[in-house]
Each structure stands twice: as structure tokens, then as C-alpha cells.
Design a protein around this nucleic acid. Structure first.
Length: 422
RNA sequence: GGAGUCGUGGGUGAGUGGCUGAAACCAGCAGUUUGCUAAACUGCCGUACUGGGUAACCGGUACCGAGGGUUCGAAUCCCUCCGACUCCGCCA
């Protein structure tokens, strides 16, 4: 959510920033709605003031047993009451109109975010490791190592997976390894709801605009598309002690995405599923530390890739490719030798005070007056399914077996290689 | 699933029709006192819109979970919804 005062103070700057995200001339409508609202309020308040004044006088007149004066005042109030309800309704409508406009506008990009309309505008700013090439793609490998695609389709339909035996264990090992690393890096391990209220999704920015990307339950809850929703909303409607910041949280959870609009895209493998696991990182910080926290968080995600010796590159997303709530985002892309491409495996975003305003999450500093909004950051550290894809392709042997990366061996119960099942 | 209770400011918690934007206490802020800390004392201490003022500030309106109703007038009475809690039953 945006700061209306800032928008009023400099609508041109607001428009220029949003134009970089492909949203043109947003301020005019908002200012108009804001103006409408205030106009209605002012007119209404004048009538209400007179009504209150007259009501007090009625009480006084009745106490003085002046029935004539009371009757005439009551007649005046009656005429006021004829138009007050309409004004109140207009005020509520104006309020709604303003909120609808405001809540649908994405965050403003940070100054150091490059221009660009889509992923072609992203800028590579770091590369790590030695990308190899050749070998099979992950789906061909997985099909012979324990991926039961037929059963998944029968049970749940397309874009779900069933993994069996050592391959299932590798998946678990990856999640455990990542979560352990992030806890060691200072993130507090957390277990959170997978089903949440609409308010929580509004807070992080998925609602009201992106309802079609989500699954919804019959009792009107929603499945989280990422643990960012649950973790970030942990501080909603709170005033935190500044001393308690930064707050660093992590959780390993399933994530659910309807993948509306992704029809036909990545349908073959395990890369784009309705359900997948992810280790999420969330930081709640003071405004002055947000930028350095963003670097720290991204480094924590990179550390996982480095621990598994998976080559990757860090991309700074351009203004047009960022998510709704982000003001600056780094994507990490892992190298897939079989597919011969870079594939997104983590996304780390600084959301500034955008989510904090929507959640009403503030902090107070000892010795200072008033409260400020916290800044929120979130990142994947990492997506488990895609990490498994990367391990399969990067650790495959000529015979189609896959060597288990050394850091995962403690979780594998003695298995050192995934062997072909047929 | 059955029965019941409750929703007030940063927190606890008074308030059951006008004198309540809302007692009191705690927390916070600014002072005074004090050798330091602590303690004590005094004042301040919600948000939005709006009128006046360079400003400190002084007025008006709204907000006591949300919406609707009754009334000249509602935190207070009525209805609907949302949320939380308690007991019983059931259950991993």
C-alpha cells in the first residue's frame, strides 16, 4: 500500500516511478478519488456539526421545560436527517473507490533498479561455479529414478508429483539441509499455517489482484503460495520494539499455486507444479538496514547453492519484471547442464514498507516519539523441487545414475547414488 | 457437532442513552528533584478529514470488531456478519 501523503506531495514522481513498471498515470485517479472523498466528508461534517449542536440544545430546552423550542429544534434535525444518510453512503463509496485504486497499485521500484519491461531487461550481476554441458534433462533422469508420473496424474491430475524410494529421500534431504543451513545463518525456525485468511494475503500483496493464482478452500481460506505470507504476517497489527529488530524467520513448507496462465509452459518436468516445497526466508527490519539485509539474505540463499556446488548467476530484476510488492529483487538462477539453461531457483525481494502498511506492522524506537512502519524482505532459500532438478542434472553419471552431493549424505541413510530402477 | 461468554486507545481495563475521545493504572515522551543509577513529582501522550494561524497551537467532524436499525441524541438499546475465548462431544 502506498503512502497517500507522499503521493499528494509529489504525484509526478509517483507516476514516473510506476511508469517504470508499466503502470501509466496512476496518480490522477487516486487524487480524484481522494478529492471526492474529502469533499463528501467536509459537506457531511457541516451537517453533523449542526445536528449535534441542535441535539444538545434539545436536551437543554427539555430540561428548561421549553417544549416549543425543543419541538422547533427537533424539526430542524429532522430535515438534516433527510440528507445525512445519502452523504454517509457517498462517503463510504468514495472511501471504497480510493482503497480499490490504491490497493491494486504495485510497489514503486527502488532507484537502483534498472529499466525494462520484462525478463530481457534483467541484469546479471554475479556468476559462480563452473557450468558443464551435456547429459540428460532432469525429467528423463527422474523417470528412471523414482518419479511416478502416472500415479500423480491419477491421484491429483497434472502438475503434481509422486516420488518414491531414494529419490523421495533426496527430496527430503534437500529440504532438511537447506533449513538447517538457514537456521545456522540466524533465521528462527518456524512452523506456520498453510491455510490463511484473505487478510493475510492482502497484507503481503497477493490479494486483491492475484486471486486467480491461488487455491481457495470451501470455508473461505486460501492455501499459501509461499510461506512468505504466513511468516511476514506474523508481525501484522503489531508495534514492535525497535530493539527486537531485525527479526529473521524461516520455514520449510509446501506451497500451492494454481499456475493460471501458465498453460502449456514447463508441463513436462518437475519445474512447475501446483504443489512444491520451499524454504522461505523473511526479515523484518528497520528502514535504514533494509538494503544491507537484502544483500545478506541473498547471500544466505547463494550459500545453499554453493554448498551443493551448483553453478548459478544472480540477476537484478528490472522494474517491469518484479513482483507486485517488491521494490528491488534479486533472482538466483541455477545452471541446468542437461537442459542447457539457467533456471530460477530463488527470488529475494526488498518490499520496503509496502507490505507493512497493508498489514499495519510498525515499530517504536526507545527515546523517539511515535511509530514507523517496518520494512519487510523475503526470499527463497531455496525451492526444494527445483533444487532437486538441479542436483539431478549436475550430478548425473553417464549411465543415468546420480551421485548424492556430499553435504546431503548425512540425510540419506547410507545411500550414495540414485540407481536406475529399470 | 452441541452449549455459552466476549470484542473499548500501545497494553490492562472502567464506562449501560446526552456532562465520554472515552476514568484509572501500566508503558512512552518532556521536565523538576538527585553526585550517578533508581525512585518521587509535574505536564504531555490515538488516527483520519477539516476551519483558522508563519508556527507552537486553537476549533469542528468521524472512529469504542464491521455493517445496518431504533432515537432529537448511541461505546451504551436492537439486528446481521466477522473474530476470539470457555465447557462438552469427537478426532491425528
Amino acid at each position: 500500500m502506498h503512502d497517500l501523503k507522499a503521493l499528494r506531495a509529489d504525484p509526478a514522481a509517483f507516476d514516473a516511478a510506476l511508469a517504470r513498471r508499466g503502470v501509466a498515470g496512476a496518480s490522477a485517479g487516486v487524487l480524484q478519488a481522494d478529492n471526492d472523498l474529502r469533499g463528501v466528508q467536509t459537506a457531511l461534517q457541516a451537517d453533523l456539526a449542526r445536528r449535534n449542536e441542535a441535539s444538545k440544545a434539545i436536551g437543554a430546552a427539555k430540561a428548561a421545560r421549553d417544549d416549543a423550542a425543543a419541538a422547533s429544534l427537533m424539526a430542524e434535525v429532522a430535515t438534516l436527517k433527510e440528507r445525512i444518510p445519502a452523504q454517509e453512503a457517498a462517503g463510504r463509496a468514495a472511501e471504497c473507490a480510493l482503497q480499490d485504486l490504491l490497493s491494486a497499485l504495485p510497489n514503486l521500484p527502488a532507484d537502483d533498479v534498472p529499466d525494462g519491461a520484462d525478463e530481457h531487461g534483467n541484469v546479471e550481476i554475479k556468476r559462480w561455479g563452473n557450468p558443464q554441458s551435456g547429459g540428460l534433462e532432469h525429467d528423463a533422469l527422474a523417470a528412471r529414478l523414482g518419479w511416478n508420473a502416472e500415479s500423480a496424474t491419477k491421484i491429483a491430475g497434472a502438475r503434481f508429483m509422486v516420488l518414491e524410494g531414494p529419490l523421495a529421500r533426496l527430496h527430503r534431504a534437500l529440504g532438511q539441509h537447506m533449513l538447517n543451513m538457514q537456521v545456522a545463518a540466524g533465521y528462527r525456525e518456524t512452523v506456520v499455517p498453510l491455510l490463511v485468511r484473505a487478510d493475510a494475503l492482502f497484507g503481503t500483496g497477493q490479494l486483491p489482484k492475484f486471486a486467480e493464482d491461488l487455491f481457495r478452500t470451501s470455508d473461505d481460506r486460501w492455501l499459501i503460495p509461499t510461506a512468505e505470507v504466513s511468516l511476514t504476517n506474523l508481525v501484522r497489527e503489531q508495534i514492535l520494539d525497535g530493539e527486537s529488530l531485525p527479526l529473521r524467520l524461516t520455514a520449510l513448507t509446501p506451497c500451492f499455486r494454481s499456475e493460471a496462465g501458465a498453460a502449456g509452459k514447463d508441463t513436462r518436468g518437475l519445474v512447475r507444479q501446483h504443489q512444491f516445497e520451499k524454504v522461505e526466508l523473511v526479515s523484518i527490519v528497520t528502514p535504514d538496514t533494509a538494503a544491507q539485509e537484502h544483500e545478506r539474505m541473498t547471500a544466505c540463499a547463494e550459500a545453499v547453492l554453493e554448498s551443493l556446488d551448483l553453478p548459478y548467476r544472480r540477476m537484478l530484476l528490472c522494474a517491469g519484471d518484479m513482483g507486485f510488492a517488491a521494490r528491488k529483487t534479486y533472482d538466483l538462477e541455477v545452471w541446468l547442464p542437461g537442459a542447457g539453461t539457467w533456471r530460477e531457483i530463488s527470488s529475494c525481494s526488498d518490499c520496503g514498507d509496502f507490505q507493512a502498511r497493508r498489514m499495519d506492522a510498525r515499530f517504536r524506537v526507545k527515546g523517539e516519539k511515535g511509530t514507523q512502519f517496518v520494512h519487510t524482505l523475503n526470499g527463497s532459500g531455496l525451492a526444494v523441487g527445483r533444487a532437486m532438478v538441479a542436483v539431478l542434472e549436475n550430478y548425473q553419471n553417464p549411465d543415468g545414475s546420480v551421485t548424492i552431493p556430499i553435504p546431503l549424505l548425512p540425510y540419506m541413510g547410507g545411500t550414495t547414488r540414485l540407481e536406475l530402477t529399470l
